[in-house]
């Protein structure tokens, strides 16, 4: 969720200032999402998802201790709030459980400005294939717009 009105001055407030603070805060950060989109009725297990920040530290995005199981064709992660020009690096591992996954892509989206990009495989219209029982180990970098 966006952190807005964090510097709001309550002693000197009017509608114009309220709007100004909102626009400034709203535009200062962007929520970034990572989606895995794949053919339905195929079982994927996302058991590793690390986010490397500017400081070089890895953040475990599955930190609630649960792997992600999905078979409805999509799973989206909220990666958090980032400033323009922030550089992030994502590494993940996905297992195709019993079923092969003939088509799967990774897409990164952000809300301010609105943008979406297929990051793996890089060319839109192409797909990655995970054979049954195989693991897809992927890494990519993304610069926030």
């Amino acid at each position: 969720m966006k952190n807005i009105f964090k510097n709001l001055d309550l002693e000197d407030l009017n509608q114009e200032k309220l709007n100004k603070w909102l626009i400034e805060d709203w535009n200062s950060t962007s929520t970034v999402y990572l989606s895995f989109n794949f053919i339905k009725r195929r079982n994927i297990l996302i058991y590793k998802l690390f986010l490397k920040l500017n400081d070089g530290k890895n953040k475990n995005m599955l930190s609630d201790g649960k792997v992600i199981k999905a078979n409805n064709g999509n799973h989206t992660f909220d990666l958090g709030q980032f400033k323009k020009d922030d550089k992030i690096e994502i590494s993940f591992e996905i297992l195709a459980v019993i079923t092969p996954v003939p088509r799967i892509i990774a897409v990164v989206s952000q809300d301010t400005p609105v943008s979406t990009l297929q990051v793996l495989p890089k060319d839109i219209g192409t797909y990655h294939e995970i054979k049954a029982g195989a693991r897809w180990k992927g890494t990519f970098k993304y610069e926030v717009l």
């Binding site: 297990l45 599955l62 792997v67 199981k69 019993i98």
Partner: peptide, 9 residues
């Protein structure tokens, strides 16, 4: 599949 316990990440 959704009900299987695949352990921790």
């Amino acid at each position: 599949f959704l009900n299987m316990d695949f352990g921790k990440p």
